[in-house]
Nucleic acid binder design. Structure first.
Length: 416
DNA sequence: CGTCCACGTCTAC
DNA sequence: TAGACCTGGACGG
């Protein structure tokens, strides 16, 4: 479940199922978890949650007067990070999910339990914790400070890296993860391995003096300006959101879809899958970044793309693909070979076509079915780099454009 | 059976 | 900048 949208949906889930519910007793940790015990016990308390980027904070609040006995305690915050597989579930007490590493029990009788489930145990929690200090503002709910934090720190060496790698730096992009970086860069057709600073410098606010128009608000229309009017620029701006805008709106789109976001195990995964335009989509290229994470993209990888493979992993990989060792690149055109097979398979399944929906409900296959269609179809052709970032239209703080705009949805992208 | 891969951090050479 | 930390599903033999 773990990028910003999933963390936020998890907090919504907790508030929904725990609203009005009274919990009681001690918080229970599984034996196997290496995370700390949660020293909280109370005869009656409530649970609420909030999220920030890739963290969720639960607040356990003792209910006063309720029994008066143990209700005298103070509230406790527990900050969670989900690792690769964390999520919350609410079940009957006799149906504890496997890998439920932290449990909160209800007081009411049909005994229920809120569990923090984490199959791989990369997740963590901190009793009496606070938002991790090194993490920046939330890309979804602290947009302005998130934006300011990035643009006022462009000299940081974090931006010496390729933009796709900088986007995973939670000090600046709290909430962005591997599928979001792919989707965001794809929307703007920004080559993933272009230096981050190069991309972001173009978003720095400029003085109005540099523009040949005044920051007139409202109707305005000083008709004398032969140049493009401000309103037009603003309009243009709105019609072409910049990278930082998308770091905010793209995650919000995922929340809009509802469901559980990235979670192939869940039945409602198909809507999310249909929403993906690049990540794990057949026809897209993929390449390991310098940290070994798979970057999905289309077109030109950009000048800082990893060249030689050196890590053992990379070597293995190269070997596997039968490449010599001069390994030209790890770029996988089309599908990663095995994907081809999958495609065939899903094609078979696809005979179900009611439309061209490639979702195969009924089969909760954990592996994302690649999208079909849009294999090639004369896409943006060359466009390579240089086409991206057609700024020039200036950018300033900018009001949060709220365009819930549900993209394509049906299938592939209509826009090019 | 084995290898590869996965929504993310962490910390140790 | 490598591993380390984990489980489990897909796929190959």
């Amino acid at each position: 479940m773990p990028e910003g949208p999933e963390l936020h949906m998890a907090s919504q889930f907790v508030n929904r199922v725990c609203g009005g519910v009274v919990f009681s007793g001690a918080v229970e940790k599984s034996e196997v978890s290496k995370n700390p015990e949660v020293p909280f016990a109370c005869t009656a308390y409530r649970i609420s949650a909030v999220s920030r980027g890739k963290e969720v904070r639960l607040t356990l609040t003792p209910i006063k007067d309720e029994g008066a006995e143990g209700g005298g305690g103070k509230p406790m915050d527990i900050v969670f990070r989900f690792g690769m597989s964390g999520f919350f579930r609410y079940t009957a007490q006799d149906e504890l999910p496997k890998h439920a590493h932290l449990r909160f029990y209800t007081k009411e009788k049909p005994g229920k339990v809120l569990s923090f489930v984490d199959i791989r145990r990369f997740g963590s929690w901190e009793p009496n914790g606070t938002w991790q200090a090194e993490r920046g503002p939330c890309v979804m709910f602290e947009y302005q400070s998130f934006r300011d934090n990035v643009l006022s720190n462009l000299s940081d060496r974090a931006f010496d890296k390729p933009i796709c790698e900088a986007l995973l730096n939670q000090k600046y992009f709290n909430g962005i993860g591997n599928y979001l970086r792919a989707e965001i860069l794809y929307r703007l057709k920004i080559p993933p391995f272009v230096k981050a600073r190069t991309v972001l410098e173009g978003l720095l606010p400029r003085d109005y003096a540099e523009l040949d128009v005044k920051p007139v608000k409202g109707g305005c229309a000083s008709p004398q300006s032969p140049e493009i009017s401000l309103s037009k620029k603003v309009k243009l701006k709105r019609e072409s959101p910049d990278l930082l805008n998308l770091c905010h709106t793209v995650p919000l789109e995922v929340i809009q879809i509802g469901g559980k976001g990235y979670d192939p195990e869940k039945a409602d995964y198909s809507d999310f899958e249909a929403w993906l335009q690049c990540y794990y989509v057949s026809g897209m290229k993929s390449l390991r970044d310098h940290n070994g994470r798979t970057m999905w993209f289309q077109g030109d990888p950009g000048p800082m793309a990893p060249k030689a493979s050196k890590s053992p992993k990379a070597k293995k990989r190269a070997k596997k693909t039968g490449d010599g060792e001069n390994d030209a690149q790890v770029v996988q055109e089309k599908e990663p070979a095995k994907k081809v097979k999958e495609e065939k398979e899903s094609k078979r399944k696809q005979r179900r076509k009611g439309k061209e929906v490639q979702s195969d409900r009924g089969t909760p296959s954990p592996v994302p079915k690649r999208k079909m269609s849009q294999s090639r179809k004369t896409p943006t052709a060359g466009q390579a780099g240089e086409k991206f970032q057609r700024s020039e239209s200036e950018s300033r703080p900018e009001p949060v454009l709220n365009k819930p705009a549900k993209p394509v949805q049906g299938t592939r992208g209509p826009s090019d």
